[in-house]
Write a protein that binds this DNA or RNA. Structure first.
Lengths: 161, 161
DNA sequence: TGACCGGGTGGAGGAGATCGACCGCCGGAT
DNA sequence: ATCCGGCGGTCGATCTCCTCCACCCGGTCA
């Protein structure tokens, strides 16, 4: 992937509804060319989708927390992600190195709802939990900056324009 | 906010590029009505924006980590978020309860880049860091489910601007 | 009851998305 | 060196969709 694709991805990460016309203006390509590239990026999975960014306070889920989990039985099969997938309050699940095995990011309506969710997590996945409550979020979902990134040796120098 | 708005937000959170026409079909309203509601949701800040979801492996940032930070001087002013904002590798910054004061989510190209980033974090904000490396991400950015949510008693049925 | 107001419908105009046809560059094979 | 094929670009046509406008309906309050 080279410069222009990177540019497109950056722009779309910043504004997922940007029109192809604007994208074309920003990149100096024609609308069709941009359209083609975006479709290719989507097909290749570089762009996995588009989402509205939501104010969780406003939609009644003002409480965010990180829940680290550790299996109670270290010998049991490690299928926690599937076991927990049905819990809609879980926004993300990361497998991590370190003392615990996964970190979950959860959004709930209240401390009571958090307590209930933790119970569901423990019983669903047979794990112990350690919870870190988020007090506030200065920023989140910042778009990646993928400028620079020196071309790898295998990358053919596609210099144009 | 009532049922239909909730529906719209859910749909847009799942597919940020859904057309107003489709949104109208899903909600049973006219295109104009949906358009109006979405604009209102945007203006009120319920919908804060739209973003493309990106495959970080594909764009050369395959290493994700959580960095917990703690001030070295507990008496110093707590302006870590602003001091760190210029570091583009930081995707999110959450103020948290517990032993540490903030949790950062970072995306970098390599272990070497992570090391360098940690140095920048420490010197920029005068903090100590504790890093948890993400091995894999079973899921992330799942759309919130905001069905149900019984109206709170304090919620007046007629919202004024 | 009558005026007001938030929120709905429908239509018109123009902008934008999408697709096909054509072209030019580059690398590999003859 | 020339031919050939694929990739990626432009241009242009068409159709969808966005966006704005005027109008309408049902509640609320004086």
């Amino acid at each position: 992937m080279e410069e222009i694709d990177r540019r497109i991805v950056t722009l779309l990460a910043r504004d997922g509804r940007m029109s192809f016309t604007d994208l074309a203006r920003e990149t100096g390509l024609s609308v069709s060319a941009v359209h083609q590239r975006v479709r290719r990026l989507e097909k290749r999975g570089v762009v996995r989708g588009y989402a509205a960014l939501v104010d969780y306070d406003a939609i009644g889920l003002p409480l965010t927390a990180f829940v680290s989990i550790k299996p109670i039985d270290p010998a049991a099969a490690d299928d926690a992600p599937e076991r927990l997938a049905h819990l809609g309050a879980i926004e993300a699940c990361h497998s991590v190195a370190g003392d615990e095995s996964y970190i979950l990011k959860v959004r709930v309506a209240s401390p009571l709802a958090l307590e209930e969710l933790l119970n569901q997590i423990r019983t669903s996945a047979n794990v112990s939990t350690r919870t870190t409550v988020v007090l506030s979020t200065p920023y989140e979902h910042r778009a990646p900056e993928l400028i620079g990134e020196p071309d790898e040796p295998g990358d053919k120098p596609r210099e144009k324009a």
